[in-house]
Design a protein around this nucleic acid. Structure first.
Lengths: 343, 343
DNA sequence: GCACATGATGTAAACCTTTACATCGAGAGT
DNA sequence: ACTCTCGATGTAAAGGTTTACATCATGTGC
């Protein structure tokens, strides 16, 4: 009972006076065993404190009950809320969550590949920004996988993300409603899918409002705080100033705010600024940033649910799930300053 | 070669023209096999792309290569940097990191216990704030474990944390150096170890500076933002105002700042405020918060290293590792306002 | 040349499950 | 009463590894 080694299925079988096969069935296919037997088995389980040895089970079944989650950086504060969604969903289906991060290092990525090859994970969750492993021969060996935020391998792997275009649209619409017409878009790299989609939302909103192309100021960068600040400088030098800065993400927005404040301007008095993502710091910026919230926990939950589907049915399933992002209005937007309108 | 099912040790043995035992030895005890044989085996491994099936290995060995990390809330942004340290250290020793969070829910805690019992984890990392499982019978079955931040089971489990007393001491010393004497300590629960230790640092610093007991204002709360704000109100009502607020953590400090600002005061002009922990938001508060940085990644690294030690040697090892915390000076502290000194 | 130690390798059991297949008994249909 | 069907249970193989023990060859000391 309080043995040093954990009870095995044989211990249970002996006590319940049945064969080990019956015990196994009583646990995993209860409908296949007579009610009275089931009862005896359950009692024996209670007595011994038996739990199925997951290693043996996985070995026999040829698949584990672990899902590997690989991100470029698990230290990213945005990662953790997604992880919550992933973990909850996995756990409630009897799966465990294994985590790893590549730090964009090929060597590390390789180690994870080995992990997968050694059968330790039944499925894989891939975060954006990783070209995980060689992409070539390896692909064939990848277990069922789901991407987060962006498609992987050109859509070969289904993914869960957010409707960037709709989010961007909500932002422009707010800006337009406040009276802005000359709105700059501060983006990151033109090659990123998120950029393209958010930009598309920006254009669509401006089209709808009848804002002509010459009022659309688009800057590119690399998505960092610094690149936001730099964009402001460029705009000032060229003396083509918008009344609002719509940024591709919160980092960039913070950079823009810092650049603007360094030049002595007030936000949102002189300029309105918006972000995208709603990072945890957004509330604490001064002014608090108006931005688009990524439903992170929900993304995690949906991604894991999708993966679990894949695992059980092998159906192709949906190849893209886009969640609806919400606008969160804080204090970085107001009506355009009279100062600029006058010009 | 590019088979559908992964290569097994038998495939390797056949190609290398040796027995499977030799292959196993060549991999895990290379010194026990002749150089020439080792070479043949390595070639065969390269040809087949063989990786040891971790399930089978764990089953045979009776222990897995996973470490379970359980926290009350993995969504906590402070958690992620610790995780980085944990993961890096584990990975570089061939271990994987499994995560789970209890959300302070007994039901969930129990599920993790089952996980452990089913041999899926060789070791356990426990975060503060969890009474993990029944604490009674279960304790016996727990694998080697290490706590983070605080001891678990009254020191039955070694832990790694931060030297709270030293950290607090650094804060008081700074405040004293700036000229403050009437310094309030805004704590959380008196029962928490961190409270006791930080409080001890506060007292020690004040003793050293010769500040009499009647100038020491101590408030208690629950460590939330709201409780910080409430403490300010109480102090104002009683009209016993300090010139500086030393808070037990950053949340409380933020609450204090909000309370002070609501009453129209300037920080640090009228009052100085300090925190403890250096949460990611601390930089973004206005003013940016002067606080104590928890060396989080390092804590994770040390905790995992300690656990790995435990796993291999079974030695009792050290029962407590305290890391040195650093003071990070930002903008929430200055000299005491003349306004109050006058009184 | 013989007994023996030594080092390299092979054989087979064990780790704990799950499940295809075999067996058994009982009730149904004739 | 005989056969058939069907539901409940048992038997045994298989999954991939590690390792105690056995075996074998080679070289050493006498």
């Amino acid at each position: 009972m309080s043995d040093s080694t954990p009870a095995t299925i044989e211990d249970v079988a002996r006590i319940a006076e049945v064969s080990i096969a019956t015990v196994s069935r009583a646990i995993h296919n209860p409908e296949k065993v007579a009610k009275s037997t089931r009862l005896k088995v359950n009692q024996a389980i209670a007595i011994t404190g038996y739990t199925t040895n997951a290693m043996a089970r996985s070995l026999r079944l040829g698949r584990s009950n672990m899902i590997l989650v690989v991100a470029p950086d698990i230290g990213d504060p945005n990662f953790s809320s997604i992880l919550v969604g992933l973990e909850n969903e996995a756990r409630s289906h009897g799966y465990g969550v294994l985590i790893g991060h590549t730090q964009n290092d090929a060597q590390r990525a390789l180690e994870y590949l080995k992990f997968l090859n050694s059968n330790q994970a039944a499925g894989l969750i891939l975060f954006t920004g990783i070209l995980p492993f060689g992409h070539d021969t390896m692909t064939a060996r990848l277990p069922p996988s789901v991407g987060i935020f962006e498609p992987v391998f050109n859509g070969g792997i289904p993914y869960v993300g957010v409707d960037d275009m709709e989010g961007a649209r909500k932002v422009v619409d707010l800006l337009i409603a406040e009276g802005h017409r000359k709105i700059a878009f501060i983006g990151d790299s033109r090659t990123r899918l998120a950029y393209k989609r958010r930009r598309a939302g920006y254009d669509a909103g401006l089209d709808a409002a009848g804002v002509p192309a010459e009022l659309r100021l688009v800057q590119e960068g690399d998505g960092t705080l610094e690149s936001g600040r730099a964009a402001v400088e460029r705009l000032f030098v060229r003396d083509t100033l918008p009344t609002a800065f719509m940024c591709v993400n919160d980092q960039t927005a913070l950079g823009v705010m810092i650049g603007l404040k360094a030049r002595g301007y007030d936000i949102p008095g002189d300029f309105s600024v918006t972000g995208f993502d709603d990072v945890p710091q957004a509330t604490f910026m001064t002014p608090a940033l108006t931005t688009i919230r990524q439903p992170r926990t929900s993304i995690g939950k949906h991604a894991m649910a999708l993966l679990l589907d894949l695992l059980s049915s092998r159906q192709p399933a949906e190849t893209e799930i886009l969640l609806r992002p919400d606008l969160v209005v804080r204090n970085s937007v107001s009506v355009p300053s009279a100062r600029w309108l006058a010009r």
